[in-house]
Structures are given as C-alpha cells and as structure tokens.
Design a protein around this nucleic acid. Structure first.
Lengths: 139, 139
DNA sequence: TATAATTGTTAGTATTATCCTAATAATGAA
DNA sequence: TTCATTATTAGGATAATACTAACAATTATA
C-alpha cells in the first residue's frame, strides 16, 4: 500500500519499456538493440539486464532478451501509469511529446493504487495523447 | 523547456524541504536537526549540504544551515509542484498523507512549466489537502 | 569554571547505480 | 571460412548515498 510494488531504478525502467515495446515486433530484442535505443554501450545494458534477470523480470533465451510474466506485468503497469499521467499533463496544456519525455522521468515511481484511482478520474487512455509513442528517455 | 530548472537528487531535495520548512521557526536549522528529521547520520547530511553549498542553494552561517535566494526559489518551486500534484491525487481519492508521501518521491522531477500549467487547471492550493504538512520522505 | 553533553567536521570505508574501454568469445552472414 | 556483428567478461571510473570512528568545537550544567 505504501510503496511501489516492484523496486526498480530509472535505467531498469528504461530497459523494461524498450523490451516491452518491442515484444510483438518481427525482430527479437537484443542487447545491441536496447543499447542503440537507449544510447548506451552494450556492457552497460548487459549489467542492467543482469540485475533485471536477478529480479525475475527478464530472461535470456537464445540471444534474445524477454520479459518474464512478472516483467510483463511490471511493463504494463508502468505503461499504464505513464499514459495516465501523460494524458493529465496533456489536458493541462503540456505539449504531447514533452509530456511523454517528462513523465518518463517518474512514471515508475507512481503507486499502482494511485494510478488505479487516477484512471477512474481520467479514463484509461489506450495510447499517448496525439498517438506519440512512449519513449525511453535518455537519462 | 525540456528539463528541470535545477538538477538535484532526491536527498538534496529532502534537505532543501527540511531547511525551507524550518525557515521561520524560532530555532535555527542545524545539521543535527536535518539528520534527525530525515533519519540520517550527521556525516551523511554534511556531505549533501556540502553539495548544496557548491550548487549555490545553501549557505552556512554561525552553525546554521540557510537557503540562499536561489535555494529559496528552488524550495518554493518544489513545494508548489508538490502541492499541486498532491491535490490532484487527493481529488482522485488517494489518502492525504499517502499522497504526500508518494508525491515526495517525484515532485522535484516535474517541470516548472508543466507545474504552472497544472496550476491553471487545478488551482493553487495553499496547503496540502487536509492540512497535512509536507514531509521529507525517508528514502 | 570545569566537566559533561551535544554538535560539527574530517577521514576512511562501503555499496549501489551508471557508465566506459579493451579484450575475447560466440554467432551469423557472405 | 573469413568477416562482421553481437555478446560477454574484465577492469575501471564516477556520483550518490550511507556508515563508523575519531577528534574538535560549542553549549549547557553542575
């Protein structure tokens, strides 16, 4: 009730978002892809992924980086929190992609219980305002 | 426009809030007081304050820890962001002191420009919902 | 005032998260 | 098979957060 369900860091969040976004793509998610997406070097990504594996959120399979069920839940939660907050900011008059960038800094810090309550107030948006993709902010 | 005006860490934020909250109190703000308030040891606080002095947000005077003008502006900004977000969460049905605790995790990450826009939407609350004091969250 | 208690500071460490380069290993493509 | 890409490991570096121990300075009190 008081804290977030899963404790992750900003960069772990970024990696989860990158992997999750790429789930249903034709090409598999690889360390190199995540590194390119987030403008990081591969060993840096390797280390963050290592931690996510330890936390049971990610698994490696034949060179691919996949979300576990737990990781997928975590991803869905962050996306939900992100969209809800972003929609709110957008309705306040913040530019859509600016709102996206900004919310990326703290979406993962929002309580799930709070996010649920915000949803009741604001509705569950299926996508970012204006259809912008959720970005993994570069630090 | 894209980033926050001043770059501070979570703990720097906590210290600024503690000092700012104590500004007009009869007793001066000391390292020991901040340490007690935030449940940290004095050398830890000393180091964070050292960084805040380097950033021009805090100054030391006769054993007292004071906010500079810049530091005071920073404090006012965070408080504003905090209250506005907290009010929003409260209106969504989140318990007042829970909202306070939660918002303390990310208030300092909100853009000033966004906060201004939220204010136009939600009004400028003079105090937290239910009059709870803004707390410096314990990590 | 002398002593005790509280505060402040410095030194020295530790941990975690982020990052990197360089080297090597493995895999895939041509 | 050779080249290129990708993955991994090793080895560092830095910043933020935290601590204990030791000592200095200040304040309070007996």
């Amino acid at each position: 009730m008081k804290n977030n369900n899963i404790n992750i860091t900003k960069r772990e969040r970024d990696c989860i978002i990158t992997i999750g976004k790429n789930r249903n793509q034709s090409f598999p998610t690889r360390i190199s892809f995540i590194a390119k997406s987030l403008d990081m070097k591969m060993p840096t990504v390797e280390e963050i992924i290592k931690r996510l594996v330890e936390k049971g959120l990610v698994q490696k399979e034949a060179g691919m980086v996949l979300l576990t069920e737990k990781g997928n839940n975590c991803y869905e939660e962050i996306i939900m929190k992100h969209r809800v907050m972003e929609t709110f900011l957008f309705e306040c008059g913040v530019n859509a992609d600016e709102a996206c960038r900004e919310v990326s800094r703290f979406d993962y810090l929002i309580d799930s219980e709070s996010a649920d309550k915000i949803i009741e107030k604001i509705g569950k948006p299926e996508k970012c305002p204006h259809g912008f993709k959720i970005i993994e902010s570069k630090r």
